[in-house]
Design a protein around this nucleic acid. Structure first.
Length: 466
RNA sequence: GGCGGCUUAGCCAAGUGGUAAGGCGGAGGUCUGCAAAACCUCUAUUCUCCGGUUCGAAUCCGGAAGCCGCCUCCA
């Protein structure tokens, strides 16, 4: 079966066909760096990571762009409230963002363009929109005239008349001809303080939506394959992007629109007032392994609302532990002779894994296929062991699954010298049948996060996933 | 008010017409000095509720209840 995605534009499952065979260009909506990103934000980035990784798994060459929105009402508001420059406010948050995606094992995109570094591109696009009659100047600001773009509303499936009927009129945007028009360029006001650019459009700053149109064009061209974001972005952000990009280029902007659902926490909407609003850092501070967070975020289909719970986080730890123990069991397995059952298990697992993800990244059946595989191979290992070549085949395929999941093969930090000593001491004690001492050492190590396992081939240690 | 989504075991979560995947948790067993890991067995006669269509429905249709979104800068 081929790869299919649910396209928000058509509200249907469509076979994925890239514009250029073997290559995928995609734009993934990134963070607005006004406050630390919360776990809900990372649901989106994790989904985008699974998408990216699976495309690579399928053999595509991927060019991914993720924008960094470092200029908007909130970054201005918060930086001026603190009396620091925009950059001083956003840079620490950008650093935190990269720290978080690294520890969640989210692969880096090819480009992370910051809005403030692409003002020229935005100005050029606004000019183009003025030229083509899609925009008008009002006072010091420039607005997009949505009545010039008949397709407006096609992504969100909303009718312009309805939007107009329900539109609220923002007091400081009274100059718009129609309430539902949106700002491309905002003329400087006192509220903006030192945040402005002197451009051929005048003194001011860009509207929010124009950055994505301008930056996607710069890095991906006027037309590309996939655009993603949270469901909240469908309207107005992505709708406006389409209007801008297609209005400026005169051709279709994006072929596949993918949107992820939000997450709730302990069955409740995540909100500061509920006390269930937290960041990745908060969870790490509580001692939770970031990859357990990753597993929680990736294990629910992206279009399904995800219920983030502490029980779920604990379950994820246990699941990852099982997968890593499996890896370790296989690595130390010995045996002779090819085993037909191994190949059968591999074939079945690959089929199940790909069937799930091919179907709009439906990851649950894929994870099920991996766990079925674990049980089958473990059973073979317990029964007959694995030959060298079978072992390598199993590890190869596990590594391939993990190229998407990203939770099994991780760098293990070296064991500390004193821990090694304690393990040796315990070995001695066991030899002398001094099990009391041996158990005491084992307990001590456990309290330091080291789990010992006595196997026929010696004592193994591993780090506990917290 | 308009538009959309969801409701499956103690928890998480697949399944979209043919008789309930998988994970976690729990129970019992094998192995082990004891553990751990691993393996084996068991853990929803039933899919929010009420009707209907059908030989057959968690899946389709109608209705009800609950939850969650979007409706101009929130992933």
């Amino acid at each position: 079966m081929s790869l299919r995605f649910y396209n928000t534009m058509t509200r249907s499952l469509e076979e994925f066909k890239p514009i250029k065979p073997g290559e995928v260009r995609m734009y993934t909506c990134g963070p607005t760096v006004y406050a630390p990103a919360h776990v809900g934000n990372y649901r989106a980035y994790t989904f985008e990571d699974i998408l990216r990784r699976y495309l690579i798994y399928k053999g595509y060459r991927v060019t991914q762009v993720m924008n960094i929105t470092d200029i908007d009402d909130k970054t201005i508001r918060d930086s001026s409230a603190k009396g620091i420059t925009l950059k001083e406010h956003t840079q620490p948050l950008i650093d935190m963002f990269f720290e978080d995606i690294d520890r969640l094992n989210i692969q880096r995109a090819e480009y992370y363009p910051a809005a403030t570094e692409h003002i020229d591109e935005m100005v050029a696009m606004v000019k183009k929109l003025l030229e083509r009659g899609h925009a008008y100047r009002s006072g010091d600001s420039i607005y997009y005239k949505i009545s010039t773009f008949p397709k407006y509303g096609s992504l969100s499936h909303m009718k312009i008349e309805e939007l107009m009927a329900g539109a609220r009129i923002d007091s400081d945007e009274y100059e718009k001809e129609t309430a539902s028009d949106f700002a491309l360029w905002k003329g400087w006001t006192e509220k903006d303080g030192a945040v402005f650019w002197e451009t051929s459009l005048g003194k001011g700053r860009p509207g929010w939506h124009i950055e994505c149109s301008a930056m996607s064009k710069k890095y991906l061209g006027e037309q590309f394959d996939i655009h993603t974001g949270g469901v909240d972005n469908i309207f107005p952000h992505h709708e406006n992007e389409i209007a801008q990009s297609e209005g400026a280029a005169g051709k279709k902007f994006v072929n596949y629109w993918l949107h992820n659902a939000h997450l709730i926490v302990e069955s409740k909407k995540m909100a500061k007032s509920e006390g269930n609003f937290f960041t990745v850092q908060d969870l790490v501070d509580q001692g939770h392994d970031p990859l357990a967070i990753r597993f929680v975020l990736l294990s629910t289909h992206y279009r399904q609302q995800l219920n983030f719970t502490m029980d779920g986080l604990e379950a994820a730890k246990a699941a990852i532990t099982r997968l890593r123990d499996f890896k370790s069991n296989v690595e130390s397995a010995t045996g002779s002779g090819e085993n037909k059952a191994v190949n059968e298990a591999i074939e079945k697992a690959v089929k199940g894994f790909e069937e799930g993800l091919d179907n709009d990244l439906n990851i649950s059946p894929s994870i099920a296929a991996v766990f079925d595989f674990v049980r089958e191979i473990n059973s073979i290992v317990a029964d007959k062991g694995l030959s060298d070549s079978d072992r390598e085949e199993v590890l190869k395929i596990l590594r391939k699954f993990d190229s998407v999941l990203g939770v099994i093969f991780v760098e293990e930090s070296e064991i500390e010298a004193d821990i090694e000593e304690m393990i040796q001491k315990r070995l001695e004690a066991r030899k002398n049948k001094d099990f009391q001492t041996a158990d005491k050492i084992r307990d001590e190590l456990l309290s330091r996060g080291i789990i010992l396992e006595d196997t026929p081939s010696g004592t193994k240690w591993k780090r506990k996933i917290s």
